[in-house]
Structures are given as C-alpha cells and as structure tokens.
C-alpha cells in the first residue's frame, strides 16, 4: 500500500507545481516577444542599408500597401520600444518567479527531511 503524503507537504508541492507552470507560461510568452524583437532589429538593419525614399510595401490582410522607408522605420522604432518594454517586464517577472521557486524548493526540501529523514531526498525544479 502506498504511503500518503502529509497534507502540509502536499500543499507545498501543489504550490511548487503551480509556480513551475506559471514560469513555463511566462517563458513561452517572453520567447515570442524576444523573437519578434530580433526580427524587428533585423529589418531595421536591412532598412538602414537602403537609400532614402525606397519604396516599401506592407502586408495588410491580402493586400500589399505601398509606403516608404522612413515611415516603416518610424513604425518599427515604435514597435521596438514597446517590445523592449514588454521584454524587460517579463524579465522582472521571471526573476521574481525564480526567487519564489527557490524559496519554495527550500521549504519543500526541509519538509522532506522532516517527514522522510531516512531518504535524504531533495526536490529540484
């Protein structure tokens, strides 16, 4: 028969799992932002090598809308600013979550040592 996990430990393990899931979701979202940011930087780099007044087309739905290099540069600079801000916000949240995870891991390991002293097991996320 399997031994029941003490409720105190069970609660902390559930919290640990929730934090881990939260971090995974956050990292997925952050990756999307960072990927778009890399793409924006790449386009800005390509645009910088084009002469002024170069015609640029932007896809809007199924249409290619005619615009110019300067308009697109301005558009992308704004987009870059927003993306960088969001990326920094995600970074702060990630740091906070990692700290919380570490603290909770310590707590869980202490409880494991308390309830299962013979195994000396430790949890790692």
């Amino acid at each position: 028969m399997t031994e029941r996990i003490p409720p105190e430990l069970q609660t902390q393990l559930v919290k640990l799992q929730q934090l881990q899931d939260q971090l995974n979701r956050l990292l997925t979202e952050k990756n999307v932002i960072d990927s778009e940011l890399r793409e924006v930087n790449k386009i800005l780099q390509e645009l910088s090598q084009l002469p002024a007044g170069t015609t640029v087309y932007k896809i809007v739905g199924n249409l290619l809308v005619k615009t110019d290099k300067e308009t697109v540069q301005k558009e992308l600079d704004d987009r870059k600013e927003i993306l960088e801000l969001r990326s920094r916000t995600y970074q702060k949240q990630e740091n906070l979550l990692r700290t919380q995870l570490e603290d909770l891991q310590k707590k869980v390991n202490e409880l494991l040592a308390k309830y299962y002293p013979q195994s000396g097991g430790a949890v790692k996320a």
């Binding site: 793409e39 924006v40 790449k42 390509e46 645009l47 170069t54 640029v56 087309y57 932007k58």
Partner: peptide, 24 residues
C-alpha cells in the same frame, strides 16, 4: 524586385540587394 525583409514588410530593391538579403 520586391524582397521580403521580415514580418509584414517587403522592399523594392535591385536584384543584387535582394540577393544579399536572401543570402543573409
């Protein structure tokens, strides 16, 4: 020619520049 720069943007460039963008 129109070359895809990335995301939703295309630039009207000469074939040499388009080749450079594609090679990159």
């Amino acid at each position: 020619v129109l070359v895809h720069l990335g995301l939703e943007y295309y630039a009207e460039v000469d074939p040499d520049f388009a080749t450079k963008v594609l090679n990159d």
